[in-house]
Amino acid sequence: MPEVDDAKLHEDEQRLKEIIERPKTGRRVSEIKDELGTTMNQYVAVYREEEGLQKAHEVVRRLKEEAKTAYVDDQGTVFNQDVLGAVELGYMLDCSEAIVVAAIERKESRGAQFRVDYPDRNDEEWQKHIDISRNGDDVPHVSYSPVTITQWEPEERKY
């Protein structure tokens, strides 16, 4: 087990405490999770296009704000799945935004992404990784890195 310093533990404890003590004025965690799921399923599944992706991004941004005040019912310390759900929601939103931003960025179709507005694969411009990194509370930062080709040459899928 790696050592964790007390300051970090204390910080996390505070974070959980803050969630548990939120007033019941915001939205329910489960509600936000539900809206996130529905949105991602609707706009960010296999078939994607600019307009839908932008919409999805807007929703995700809004949900991120709402998540900050989302409340939980369970105030206890034993097996509190409610507060765990709130913590997980934060990570889900982060991942969702990374997916959406990368999908908007990649203007071609490849693998599991089918861009209706860019139906073709475009090795010349897009045979590269898109790297997404956190940027505080702002929209994540986009950068690229090259693809290392080893044994198998990438080929277009013809089925």
Binding site: R28, S30, D74, G76, N80, D82, G85
Partner: peptide
């Protein structure tokens, strides 16, 4: 029930 009514239900 847990999502809509009572988040403290443990399962």
């Amino acid at each position: 029930a847990k999502n809509n009514e009572d988040g403290s239900i443990g399962v």
